[in-house]
C-alpha cells in the first residue's frame, strides 16, 4: 500500500502524540491534537495508508496506549523510526500497528510517496524508483503482528 511520508525529528514523546490534558475525552478528541507542535495540522493532512518516519527514541514517555491508538485512528499504516522507546514499541505491535526500525533517514523526504513492504523488510521510494532497508521485526513479535495484534493472538491461544 502506498502512502506519503510524514518526516519527524528525534524524541517525539507521548504527550505530543496524545496530550495528557485530553486523556479523559476519547480517541477522536485526542487525535485532533496529535503532533500539534511537531507537525502542525497533521490530523488534517494525514490520509489512509500514510507513513510516519521518526528519528531516534520515537514514542518516549508515558505507557499510554492512546499514543499508538491515535495513529491507528488516523489510518497510519506503519511507524518507522531510527529507534523506538521500549513501551511505545511494545504497544504498537500489541495493537497491530507495525513499528519498524530503519537507521537510514537521509534518503527519505517529507511528503514523498512510499510503499511499505513488511514481507521483504523494505521501504520502496516510488518516485525515486529505489528502496531502503528496514530492520526485521523479531519472530515472537511478528507472530503477534501477523495475527493482527495481541488480542487476536491471545484469542487463538485461549481457544
Amino acid at each position: 500500500m502506498a502512502g506519503k511520508i510524514f518526516l519527524l525529528g528525534n524524541d517525539i514523546d507521548t504527550d505530543q502524540l496524545a496530550p495528557g490534558r485530553f486523556m479523559g475525552q476519547g480517541i477522536k478528541k485526542l487525535s485532533e491534537h496529535c503532533l500539534e507542535n511537531a507537525y502542525p495540522n497533521f490530523p488534517k493532512l494525514v490520509k489512509r495508508g500514510d507513513v510516519i518516519f521518526g528519528g531516534k527514541n520515537f514514542g518516549t514517555g508515558s505507557s499510554r496506549e492512546q499514543a499508538v491508538e491515535v495513529l491507528k485512528f488516523l489510518k497510519i499504516s506503519v511507524v518507522i523510526a531510527q529507534s523506538f522507546a521500549g513501551i511505545f514499541y511494545r504497544n504498537s505491535i500489541n495493537l497491530g500497528l507495525p513499528a519498524v526500525v530503519c537507521y537510514d533517514n537521509l534518503h527519505v523526504q517529507d511528503g514523498e510517496i512510499v510503499d511499505f513492504d513488511l514481507k521483504n523488510n523494505q521501504l520502496n521510494l516510488i518516485e525515486k524508483n529505489k528502496s531502503i532497508k528496514l530492520e526485521s521485526i523479531p519472530t515472537n513479535l511478528m507472530e503477534i503482528l501477523n495475527d493482527g495484534g495481541l488480542i487476536p493472538h491471545l484469542k487463538k491461544r485461549i481457544k
Binding site: 505507557s63 499510554r64 496506549e65 513501551i87 504497544n91 500489541n94 495481541l150 488480542i151 491471545l154
Partner: peptide, 20 residues
C-alpha cells in the same frame, strides 16, 4: 516495568508476559 493497557489485559488474563 511499565506496559500499555492491551498488554496489561493479556497479563491479567494469563499471568504471563514476554521479556527480552
Amino acid at each position: 516495568f511499565g506496559i500499555g493497557s492491551t498488554e496489561m489485559a493479556g497479563v491479567l488474563a494469563t499471568g504471563e508476559i514476554w521479556v527480552k
